[in-house]
Amino acid sequence: MKSSVIIFPGSNCDRDMDVALKKFGFKNQMVWHNDAEIPKSDMIVLPGGFSYGDYLRCGSIAGKSRIIKSVINFANSGGLVLGICNGFQILTETGLLPGILQQNKYLNFICTNVFVKIKNKENKFFNRINKEVLELHIAHNEGNYFCSNDELKLIEDNGQIAVTYCDEKGNDDEYNNPNGAIKNIAGIFNKDKNILGMMPHPERMIDPFLSGEDGSLFFENLVGSL
């Protein structure tokens, strides 16, 4: 299984993602944002960080960088694309995913463990995970997902909501919403479910000595689905 992690100036979870992908059996390569082509891959990952300093808007400049054309072509031809945190923000900026990510409701950066409920398993990202609730980790200042009512209806109808913030038991109500995201949305798919953007970082949860291990389930499933 081959994966490519794109490095933008200001990316800072690129190494963590590389470590995680390799741990679970991916042959991963790092790709520089200014390259024109992406080497042959089964999956492209846009990692977390502060691409281009998050100037203008989070992810907006990265969304216009040279490599993005190849990412879009890859995605449109059905290739698997995963955007974590800043990567999710970039995906919304390119239009590959609907909606936007605003500043957190309480205006503070949040770094903490959260629970998320898997809302759709008919896709290569979650299909064989036999848990309904995962414990993952968030670290962001702009993770407050928002979209128009029309868009929301569309993504709900299409089953595009991937994961929602919830408690240990899976209650995804307003009491378990760390950043104010609409409908507690922590991650969404595109219509065809080959693109996933999510705020939580599975790559920080791959070892019992770290914040937890549910990230391992995510990567094990991914490597098996490809």
Binding site: C13, R15, F109, C111, T112, H137, R204, L210
Partner: peptide, 15 residues
Amino acid sequence: WKQYDHTVMGDTIQK
């Protein structure tokens, strides 16, 4: 400390 990213780099074993 919740406002500080204390887990990036994937090696923080005591927060």
